[in-house]
Design a protein around this nucleic acid. Structure first.
Lengths: 237, 237
DNA sequence: CTATAATTCAATCAATTGATTGAATAGTTG
DNA sequence: CAACTATTCAATCAATTGATTGAATTATAG
């Protein structure tokens, strides 16, 4: 009968080793960034390298590690490998990790507060506040991510204004528009920069910290009305 | 204006570094085990060392790492340091990690199936099935964890039968009892061993893979009726 | 077929992490 | 106070991981 307990212990140890296979993937800041980028849509190695600023071969190596742990998959298109997250549960894990880190690590608040203080006129709205504004007012909800990511999925009612197009977009915008900008989520501060620029140009602008993933998890795919001033009907995810 | 984008990138990189502080904690199987044990209640270093089989000083070192990342806290009682999880969100992260690992890593299913095949008469019930049995039948729900863990919290209606007391408990048990046994959760296979022993002795016994944490997350602290054959009123968590 | 592009693989070195041993520290008891 | 207990810290070595460079592989186009 002691055999059974020894077996139980061996199994338990091995189960924890399996758990740490995925745990190890989360130990690298670079891999966390790659996973987050892939949570916004499939991407080539080249694209990931460009966004993260990492060497090509290093990105590839991190991806092989994520592949081995079954966190990502890829398809081939000509000479390109297109990587994606292997399962939506990866997003759940990433947001759980973010939630805990944000709660426990004071350094994170310091970092974000410090940056926001540099842009001292920028106001952040919660998801509920944004949802209310969509319901009760005429606002422009700007998705600042690259178009390919917008097309994969976006908050209903949002319009796509990739960051590098913001300047030209502003030039054609009516001054009385009320604007909320969002980007990839809490680890991306582009929404703050955009809101700051818009306010500098006299617009009534806010930012939302969260991105599409957080929105979906929060509203659990509940039906959300479309922003009333949308020019073209946004394609539903 | 390029300064802002450089700042944004610097902030982004630093935010990912912060995220990886907690990510790094998850890269060790031993630390995952420690965190899971602490999710069942506060413990001394000594106790953790005894359960995990690790050297004393090694446990202490892992705990210092978890302390630095704010995943655990401790209080002093005489010469003893009692460690606890710093926040319930740690449990959320652990279960999210488990869910993903279980889904993605075939080796886990192989491990558990292999062990269950050794105990080929053991039947596993889902949490819903257990909940139904509690509602509709007279069952004994056995919590196999140490008493201290049971007292911190347990599934309503469960009675405490620590693993090492199972043999004596069986001797005083009516043969017609219907029994469901649970332990610390999916990474602990003691429930299978207990159900196997009970069935060997002629009892009508099942196991539940999940533990208290999973039960609470699943039923979201919904009110669950007490098992009708409970001898003493279980203390509510 | 050759040249090119995108990616992976292998080798190497640097950096980090895990485990152990023994010393140091803090608290308690007789 | 001395002796003991529980834990942490420091030093050391082994193991693992991260980053870089360059070679190898795969797919495509002319």
């Amino acid at each position: 009968m002691n055999d059974l307990f020894e077996s139980a212990n061996t199994i338990k140890d091995e189960l924890y080793r399996q758990l740490s296979r995925i745990g190890k993937c989360l130990s690298s800041d670079k891999r966390l960034e790659i996973l987050t980028l892939l949570s916004q849509g499939p991407k080539t190695v080249e694209k990931l390298a460009a966004i993260t600023g990492m060497h090509f071969a290093n990105v590839s190596r991190h991806l092989q590690i994520l592949l081995e742990a079954k966190l990502v998959t890829f398809t081939k298109n000509k000479t390109h490998a297109i990587y994606s997250l292997a399962d939506p549960a990866v997003v759940d894990l990433l947001t759980s990790l973010w939630r805990l880190s944000e709660k426990q690590l004071a350094d994170i608040a310091k970092l974000k507060d410090g940056f926001m203080n540099e842009l001292d006129d920028v106001q952040t709205l919660s998801m509920e506040e944004v949802y209310d504004k969509i319901n009760t007012q005429s606002i422009l909800l700007l998705d600042l991510r690259p178009k390919e990511e917008f097309e994969i999925g976006h908050i209903p009612g949002a319009i796509s204004v990739p960051m590098e197009e913001l300047d030209s977009f502003m030039r054609e915008l009516q001054k009385d528009a009320e604007i909320v900008a969002y980007c990839r989520g809490p680890l991306c501060v582009y929404s703050a920069i955009a809101a700051h620029k818009l306010k500098d140009e006299g617009f009534n602008a806010y930012r939302m910290d969260e991105g599409l993933n957080e929105w979906q998890q929060h509203f659990n795919n509940a039906k959300v009305p479309e922003a009333s001033s949308s020019d073209k009907p946004p394609r539903r995810q």
